[in-house]
Computed example of a mutant assay.
Amino acid sequence: MKSEIIVVTVAYGNQRIAALGGQIAVLPIIQQAGADGVEIRRELFNDATLANLPALAQAAKEHQLSISYSVPDTLFCDDGGLNPRLTNYFEEAQQLNAQRLKMALGNFTGALPTGELRALIASRDIPLLVENDQSEHGKLAPSQQFFAAISDAELPIGMTFDMANWCWTQENAEQAAAELGAYVGYIHVKAAVPHGDSFRAVALDDASDSWRTLLKQLPDNIPRGIEFPLEGDDLLAVTRHYVTLLRNV
């Protein structure tokens, strides 16, 4: 079974998305490029869009695109407690008819609110995926601790494996893939290069081939999201190029 190919809207850049008229404006491009789905980003919503999420869901359906919903927040708060806005995020995902809800981990202290999480996930029937972000909480050790606890509790929570965020946390991505691959349910395909005292994401054609090696270490039948920059005068052509590339890797 071939992996579903998803285009993450921020790949076009926040300013470009705004200039085009919002995330709904890139749905025709993503469809015509041959992708299967779109990752909608909450941070790009304006008040009007947030107040009418079913309209965005309907637009995606008309363009035959599944929706993944990305929320720029963490599952656990700084004090280690479960994020009180989690129910709200699930409700938004439900309005979008999303196939998955993605968040970062946050400060997981080892205390897993198993019953609360199980009830919430069951009531919404939307898979929750936790991503390795660029913070200290996105490092390998906290991720290992969390997913081991999730596995022991038999909770249906998977991982979004961001291929390049390990650069920011200064860890070995291939080791992370070996340690966490069993939990991965969605891949953010991304490459990064050094930039000043940090890193910046780059298009795959501008990176070394190490991303190919890493991608082959991960499950080959799960969704792959394009999160690296999609830039140029012809957004359809560049999007189609990378959708085709990832479909055939």
Rank of each mutant, 00 (worst) to 15 (best):
V10R: 12
R240V: 03
F90C: 11
P72Q: 01
G22D: 05
F90I: 06
T49L: 02
F76M: 03
E39F: 09
G106I: 04
A104K: 07
N88M: 06
V238M: 05
H241P: 01
D209R: 04
A33E: 03
Q175R: 14
L245W: 11
S70H: 11
A111F: 12
A104I: 06
V189F: 09
A191D: 10
R41E: 06
L27R: 02
Q134T: 14
A149W: 11
L128A: 07
G138I: 09
A182K: 13
L20G: 01
A98T: 07
G22C: 00
L140E: 07
E174D: 10
N165G: 04
L230M: 06
D36A: 13
N97D: 15
D79C: 07
L180P: 13
F161T: 06
C77H: 10
E92K: 06
R124V: 07
L53C: 06
P219H: 07
I226L: 12
I150A: 14
Y183F: 12
L129T: 10
H195K: 07
I126A: 04
I226Y: 12
Y89C: 04
L245T: 15
K190S: 06
P72V: 01
P156Q: 05
G81Y: 12
D162I: 02
W211R: 11
I30F: 00
P28T: 03
E179V: 13
S123G: 11
A141F: 08
T213W: 15
Q144C: 12
A25C: 02
Q58C: 00
L53V: 01
G196Y: 01
S210L: 14
D206I: 02
I17L: 10
Q175D: 14
C167K: 09
Q170I: 05
V7N: 07
L236K: 08
Y242N: 02
Q58T: 03
N172R: 07
G181T: 14
T87S: 13
N97Q: 14
A59T: 08
D205Q: 13
T244S: 15
L53R: 05
Y12Q: 06
L44H: 00
D220H: 13
T114V: 14
A153G: 03
A60M: 09
S3W: 05
Y242P: 07
A192V: 12
Q32W: 00
A51R: 04
V184D: 07
Q134N: 10
K102P: 00
L230T: 07
V26M: 03
G115C: 00
L82F: 09
A148H: 15
A51K: 03
T109M: 12
V243K: 05
V38R: 04
L140N: 00
D133R: 09
Q94R: 14
D206K: 15
I6L: 11
